[in-house]
Nucleic acid binder design. Structure first.
Lengths: 195, 195
DNA sequence: GGGTTCATTCTACGGTTGTTGACCGGCGGC
DNA sequence: GCCGCCGGTCAACAACCGTAGAATGAACCC
């Protein structure tokens, strides 16, 4: 018997090439965005020919779709306060190492309609969970604001690299944001009682 | 004497054409971003030939630079609370009618390095004023967070058009954000006393 | 072991884009 | 009234990009 890693079978090699292409695509899409990324550049970074990328993924759009596939980031349900804390935990993880797939989606969402749709779709479950947990007439707006804050902070840290945000520790950031999130997630005290 | 508007002089006509081109450029840059905007499309929208755009502005980059020129948005100084309120006022204005020049800059900042630089430069004075007003060791970070929130909300409302944010009234948004801004602008109570 | 499948490459085409230079015609000064 | 400047157009070039299709050679199945 031969070691499975000694000489990869054809199917293995195909998967391996696909994965190398996808990794290169994720990185370049995340760095340059959809429009400035060329199939040739992705192929070159993956060490293959541009034709192969087309052969495996069909088109640039389909390659992008595969590259930015990201698991829906579900929040554990609970009270509004607990959900706010869960959102902070999610934010802390994303502040340290946001995966390239998410960055690629973020980078392209303003200039590519398809990316914008995927971004909206990816954020939708979290948005719904937030809206549901915040029992208030303006829960929709509060959830939208929380989402906007999260993505604004991530974008300015990882994409724009504003020094004010890029140099700070995740703990420092979420500690400053915690009261904001709690306030936004908590219904006004006039009609609802906390906890 | 002839009415000055009856037949415009040559200099007037040039300025008029330049302004029409700039207006078209601002709108298209704001809608599509830098890369998807073509000089031909701008020229067509302005009712002129593409060559004229080059003739007047030199290159696409220079046209973009002229199109996104936006006056630095200065905040009136004061205590941290007053500055936070001024930032809210600025936000309210930008929520109703953000000028196309600013939207063009926002739209392109993630995919165009030059736009990113201009964005950073445009936000710098406001960022400095915020940092100065917030007397705390982490003033830099707090100012950065405030800026990130403002731009995140504007981007998701005007560029991404997330329904949660696009449908809300500016008053509702800034009322929800006010406690967040006050909290972020106010130094921790352990060492500083408010007002 | 022979025929086939398939991973991979090469070449090329059509379209778009930024940019250029020649050209035209009317306004402005003399 | 004439000449030159200048607003404006037209046609074209060179580069690049996404994409298609033929070609090749090695791996796989029977």
């Amino acid at each position: 018997m031969t070691e499975p890693s000694a000489r990869p079978t054809r199917a293995q090699q195909r998967l391996q090439s696909e994965e190398r292409i996808l990794a290169a695509a994720r990185q370049i899409f995340a760095e340059l965005g959809y429009e400035r990324t060329t199939i040739r550049a992705v192929a070159s970074a993956a060490g293959v020919d541009a034709g192969l990328v087309m052969h495996y993924f069909g088109s640039k759009d389909l390659l992008f779709a595969r590259a930015v596939e990201v698991p829906a980031d579900e929040l554990p349900g609970g009270t509004s306060g607990e959900v706010a804390e869960a959102l902070l935990t999610s934010l802390r993880r994303r502040l340290t190492d946001e995966p390239a797939a998410s960055l690629a989606l973020l980078r392209s969402m303003l200039t590519n309609a398809d990316a914008a749709d995927r971004y909206r779709a990816a954020g939708k479950p979290q948005l719904n969970q937030l809206t549901e947990a915040i029992s208030a007439p303006d829960a929709h707006l509060r959830a939208g604001l929380l989402s906007a804050i999260v993505h604004g902070v991530i974008a300015e840290r990882h994409l724009l690299r504003l020094t004010h945000l890029a140099d700070a520790s995740p703990e420092q950031i979420i500690d400053l944001l915690r009261p904001c999130f709690q306030t936004l997630a908590t219904a006004p005290p006039t009609s609802g009682k906390p906890s």
